[in-house]
Amino acid sequence: MTTTTQRSTASARLTCLAVAAPLWATVSLAQAALRDGFDLTRHPLSMLSTGSLGWLQIANFVVAGVLIVIGATGLRQALSSTWAPRLVLVNGVGMLAAGILPMDPADGFPAGTPAGIPQTMSWHSYGHMAAGSIAFISLIAACYVLGRHFARTGNHRDAVVSHVTGSALLLGDVWAMTGGAAGSLTLAVGAITAMLWVAVVAARLR
C-alpha cells in the first residue's frame, strides 16, 4: 500500500512538471502575439510582466515556478540521477522569483514607453535578471546532467536530445547577452525548447 501511494504521489508531482512548460510557453507566446507593441525579436518574454496586463505574465511565472518545484520532488523519486532533480528545483525557484520581481518597461513596451534601454533600473528589475540567470543556468545544467544520465543507461537518443536542448538554451542566452540580432527570439526558442524537453522526460517517467 505504501509503495502504491508513493508511486501515485510521484506520478502526480511529475504531472505538475510535465504541465509547467507547455502552460508557460502557451500563455507567454499568446501574449507575445496579442499584446500591442510587443516584438519578440526585440523584447524578452519577461517584459510581458509590465503594463496593465503584466499581472498575467507575473502569474504565469509564479504558477510555472510552483509547478516545477513540486515536479522536482517527483523527479527525485522517479530518477536515479542525484543532480537533475536538484537543478530542476533551482530552476523552479528561479522562475518563481522572476515572476515576483518583474522587469521595468523598456524599448517601446508597453506601448508608449520611450525607445531604448532606460538609464536606470529598479531594484526588482535587477532582481529579475539575477533570478532569470539562475533559472537559465540551472536548466542548462539539468539538461546536460540528464544527457549524462541517459548515456549511462544506454539511451543514446535521449542523451543527444538532452545535450541539444541544453545547448540551444546556452547559445540562445549567450547570443542575447552579447546583443546578437533578434537575441530575445533566440533566447525564447532556447528556453522553451529546454523547458519542453524536461516536461517530456517528466511525462515519460509518469
Score class of each variant (00 low, 15 high):
Pro118Asn: 12
Gly116Thr: 12
Ile134Cys: 04
Leu170Val: 01
Gly154Ala: 08
Asn91Val: 04
Gly180Met: 13
Val90Thr: 08
Thr120Val: 12
Met121Asp: 01
Gly154Met: 10
Gly154Cys: 08
Ile140Gly: 05
Thr193Cys: 09
Trp175Met: 12
Gly147Lys: 02
Gly154Leu: 07
Thr193Trp: 00
Leu89Glu: 00
Leu187Ile: 08
His163Gly: 13
Ile100Met: 08
Val161Lys: 05
Val174Tyr: 11
Cys143Val: 07
Gln119Cys: 02
Asp173Arg: 09
Leu87Glu: 04
Ala84Glu: 00
Ala182Lys: 05
Ile100Lys: 00
Ala168Gly: 04
Leu139Trp: 03
Ser80Leu: 03
Met177Asp: 13
Gln119Glu: 14
Ala141Trp: 02
Ser81Phe: 09
Tyr144Arg: 04
Phe136Gly: 00
Asp107Cys: 06
Leu169Asn: 11
Ile137Ser: 07
Thr186Asp: 04
Leu96Trp: 06
His128Ile: 06
Met121Arg: 11
Ile117Gln: 15
Val160Lys: 15
Val160Gln: 10
Ala142Leu: 01
Trp123Gly: 10
Ile137Val: 15
Gly94Trp: 01
Leu170Ser: 02
Met95Gly: 01
Met95Lys: 04
Ala191Arg: 00
Gly179Ala: 12
Phe109Arg: 01
Ala131Pro: 04
His163Asn: 14
Ser122Asn: 07
Gly172Tyr: 01
